[in-house]
């Protein structure tokens, strides 16, 4: 067994369910005896990603693959896309709706935090078609 894969569907616009994927992944990783600090980084980055998919992406799919060397996360949504990825990666920049802000989201820390907590990140997006974020935490 060289790779384990977990798949999740993230529903759009349901804040109460955002975090299901990250919390399931966290609890699975704990059963693997992976370094707690690495688990924490995976869990935080994935949660930020899930929240983004709810707020901006209208939901999508999360695929997490684990090998003894690394945890890879692919988050794919079919939302409105990001016109300027460099700008979106800046701390404090946010296009979140008033509704999202009223729930305490939209601080402009989503993508920056995902970058901060992971070893590799690659964001690709087509406006009007959706966004794919690939992240990795090395073990």
């Amino acid at each position: 067994m060289s790779e384990l894969t977990f798949r999740f569907v993230v529903p759009g616009d349901d804040y109460s369910r955002a975090g299901e994927a990250s919390s399931t992944v966290k609890n699975r990783l704990k059963r693997l005896g992976i370094d707690p600090a690495a688990i924490r980084r995976v869990s935080i980055a994935l949660y930020e990603g899930e929240i983004n998919m709810v707020i901006h992406g209208g939901g999508g799919e999360v695929i997490v693959s684990v090998t003894p060397q690394r945890v890879d996360m692919v988050l794919e949504d079919h939302g409105k896309g990001i016109p300027d990825i460099a700008l979106a990666m800046q701390e404090g920049y946010s296009t979140a709706s008033d509704q999202a802000r009223s729930l305490g989201f939209g601080a402009g820390m989503g993508l920056p935090n995902m970058k901060k907590y992971t070893d590799e990140i690659e964001v690709s997006s087509v406006v009007g078609q959706g966004t794919t974020v690939r992240m990795a935490v090395l073990l």
Partner: peptide, 20 residues
């Protein structure tokens, strides 16, 4: 001290196999 009680096996590859 933290006590590791959840891990399925000390060896990561074996634990992955078990989880699978």
């Amino acid at each position: 001290q933290f006590c590791e009680v959840l891990s399925l096996d000390q060896d990561l590859a074996t634990a992955m196999e078990l989880l699978n």
